[in-house]
């Protein structure tokens, strides 16, 4: 069982263990979920490599990072699957995956594929700020500190003044994470909603990887 320390998933990602015929190259923010899906479904043919989750904050770097990882490892596996959605790359990741002949997850981002891409889009919640399990745990590293709110809380309304609620998309039932996400909403001055999604379309994608 690999060490799934959230901080190392954020900064370093996760190295593949070299076992399995199909390599999943994923965002570090999905490591817990993908390994759970693998375990629950007996998908022993899958190996997992994660890129640093903090790339979430630098989407312009994702495409090259994925391309490098695919090129580096593809010869060692029968197949590679990219467990990213568009994730702010503006179609560049999709083009790169098509170019490399590897599959990826449908949709704009993880919020959409956890909730269900079509359902997420039909909700049209443009004034909602979303968190997943991972982002609820790593809120300070992904939101609070990079936006300078730890030093300048007075900037809060400039960043989030147009938002009205925080929606926590929960992958697992965990009252502590629920409490934590609610605290984040309180800190941001937003209404709070917990929405249980389970693994959503991530599970389908990984099963068919």
């Amino acid at each position: 069982m690999p060490d799934l320390n959230d901080q190392s998933l954020t900064i370093d990602g996760l190295a593949p263990n070299g076992r399995g015929r199909v390599l999943i190259i994923a965002c570090g923010a999905l490591a817990h979920e993908i390994l759970a899906i693998k375990r629950m479904n007996g998908l022993d043919h899958l190996d997992l490599q994660c890129l640093p989750a903090i790339l979430h904050n630098h989407p312009e770097r994702i495409t090259d990072a994925v391309r490098d990882a695919v090129e580096k490892h593809r010869a060692d596996y029968d197949r590679v699957f990219v467990a990213y959605a568009d994730c702010g790359t503006g179609g560049l990741l999709e083009m790169a995956c098509a170019d490399m002949g590897v599959g990826m997850i449908r949709g704009p981002h993880c919020y959409a594929f956890f909730d269900g891409v079509d359902q997420f889009e039909s909700r049209g919640e443009v004034t909602a700020f979303f968190l997943t399990d991972f982002l609820a745990r790593q809120f300070d590293a992904f939101v609070w500190k990079p936006l300078g709110l730890d030093k300048h809380p007075e900037l809060l309304s400039l960043y989030f003044g147009n938002y009205d609620k925080l929606v926590y998309l929960a992958q697992i039932d965990d009252p502590e994470l629920d409490d934590l996400a609610r605290k984040h909403a309180d800190r941001m001055g937003l209404a709070y909603e917990r929405r249980f999604t389970g693994y959503g379309e991530l599970e389908t994608a990984i099963k068919h990887a």
Binding site: L147, G148, L149, K151, H152, L155, L158
Partner: peptide, 11 residues
């Protein structure tokens, strides 16, 4: 400079 500093300057 990064976004927080620019925002403070703009403010």
């Amino acid at each position: 400079l990064f976004v927080p500093e620019v925002l403070l300057a703009a403010n």
